[in-house]
């Protein structure tokens, strides 16, 4: 019995505080980010941990108007939701077919899609640039939207194939017995049944593109088309000429982070499980 007691002793004593410290560090960074966004640049360095004496809402006003975070937010919202909807519209039927209509092609095509998960964006970006340039789709939000949807295919098809495969077959079979065509069965039975998986796939897609940088950086040029991460980078760049405006920068950072944080507080469990569960099963 002595041994049994001995184990939880030291490991609990040191373990839990360590885990909490690790977590508290992230919380502290988030809190400090919020505080900083409401302070003047002088106060940020003079008293990094104190509450702002008078909240500098002006930081947000500056970021939103002078650096046009408002426009960037609008661009990003349209782009990201458009991407999620189109991605689901294209990949849900494919995933359904791959998991439920058995032909000799299924496992091959599923593996073929999974292959894309291992191809880094840097590998495909050059030919894509040449291609989009030929089509006059460089520096165009439509062009970026097409690229986002296309590059979402591997993960979303892969994710939804697994999800459709886990759904019960009975309802579908009953619908078929009642004389519903396969097409109708998909739209009226399977899609509503798969709602939770589809919503999860959409959320993951939105989160992934909300802060996407590489494609935006390469394919967008003019300032009025900038997405949020490009607006942040632009702000950083301008600070080198116009002097440090850390308060404004952090107001911009909060503009990017707070919607994600709200979404995470609301749907956290779904996001965590969506991003990790496939690995365990």
């Amino acid at each position: 019995m002595a041994m049994t007691r001995k184990f939880p002793g030291p490991s609990k004593l040191l373990g839990s505080p360590f885990a909490w410290l690790f977590a508290l560090f992230s919380v502290a960074v988030a809190v400090w980010m919020l505080l900083t966004s409401l302070k003047s640049t002088r106060a940020i360095f003079a008293e990094p941990w104190s509450l702002p004496t008078t909240p500098q809402w002006d930081n947000y006003a500056r970021a939103w108007t002078a650096s046009d975070f408002a426009g960037a937010t609008l661009n990003t919202v349209i782009l990201v939701f458009g991407t999620a909807v189109a991605t689901i519209a294209l990949s849900a039927p494919a995933a359904y077919a791959l998991s439920r209509i058995l032909t000799r092609w299924n496992s091959g095509i599923t593996a073929f899609f999974a292959l894309g998960l291992g191809i880094p964006s840097q590998v495909i970006i050059l030919p894509l640039y040449v291609m989009m340039n030929e089509l006059y789709l460089v520096d165009s939000l439509t062009g970026l939207w097409i690229l986002y949807v296309a590059t979402s295919m591997p993960f979303t098809v892969f994710f939804l194939t697994g999800f459709f495969g886990s759904l019960p077959k009975e309802l579908e079979e009953a619908a078929a017995l009642d004389g519903a065509s396969a097409n109708r069965t998909f739209w009226q039975i399977m899609l509503p049944l798969a709602r939770s998986g589809i919503i999860t796939a959409m959320i993951l897609n939105i989160i992934q593109h909300w802060g996407e940088t590489l494609f935006g950086l390469v394919f967008l040029q003019s300032e009025e088309k900038a997405t949020l991460s490009l607006a942040l980078l632009g702000f950083l760049q301008r600070m080198q000429y116009n002097g440090a405006d850390w308060g404004g920068l952090f107001a911009g950072v909060c503009t990017v982070v707070l919607p994600v944080l709200a979404c995470y507080i609301w749907l956290g469990r779904r996001i965590i499980e969506g991003m990790t569960l496939g690995s365990v099963k």
Partner: peptide, 18 residues
Amino acid sequence: PFIAPALVLYVVFYILPT
């Protein structure tokens, strides 16, 4: 018909560029 749109997009924007 169900697979083609996703597959075409994937091949054109992922596999061919690779």
